[in-house]
């Protein structure tokens, strides 16, 4: 026994290290870890708490019911507001001071409707240059209800103001 005393000292060092580890571990493992699985349950809350940027069409329609009514009559019924107007969370949050800029039809319409062989055949496509030259799309089409002759023109000026 006397001759293996140094091994006992070694074992004591190891045991000390192990104990240290166990104590440290209980301090540092986040409290919500393992609640639902092998992760920090509070991380779910962190992600859920992120800022909403797109208001969602329901929020838009709450105020802009007139535009929604117009849009719902036409081919763009299934196109949500922010698809063209961009994210409006801030505007919805503070409609008085945050005013969204009006989209530029010259750039906007072709984003979807410029012809491309990879687009589904049934999707209405034009080669803008041949279709209208330099004439702006909204000269003939009302964006919220684009079929010519279908929409009352003044309704759109409401948004333009």
């Amino acid at each position: 026994m006397k001759d293996s005393e140094h091994l006992i000292r070694l074992a004591a060092v190891f045991a000390g290290g192990l104990l240290f580890f166990v104590v440290i571990r209980s301090f540092f493992v986040p409290s919500s870890f393992g609640l639902y699985g092998h992760y920090r349950a509070d991380a779910i809350k962190d992600v859920a708490a992120l800022q909403v940027v797109h208001a969602g069409h329901e929020a838009c329609e709450g105020c802009h019911s007139d535009v929604a009514d117009l849009k719902n009559k036409g081919k763009h019924a299934h196109v949500n507001c922010e698809a063209c107007h961009g994210p409006q969370g801030q505007h919805a949050n503070d409609p008085m001071s945050v005013k969204p800029p009006l989209p530029d039809p010259a750039k906007l319409c072709v984003t979807c409707h410029e012809a491309n062989a990879a687009k589904p055949r049934s999707f209405p496509q034009i080669v803008a240059k041949d279709h209208a030259g330099d004439v702006a799309c909204n000269t003939c089409h009302v964006p919220h209800n684009p079929r010519i002759g279908d929409a009352p023109a003044p309704a759109h000026s409401e948004v333009k103001k």
């Binding site: 859920a48 800022q51 940027v53 797109h54 969602g56 069409h57 949500n80 922010e82 698809a83 063209c84």
Partner: peptide, 17 residues
């Protein structure tokens, strides 16, 4: 996740025309 847990759809779905 910050949207769908509030009853909204995802941003990509919202903007998909």
């Amino acid at each position: 996740y910050h949207r769908i847990t509030k009853g909204l759809t995802t941003a990509c779905c919202e903007e998909c025309p």
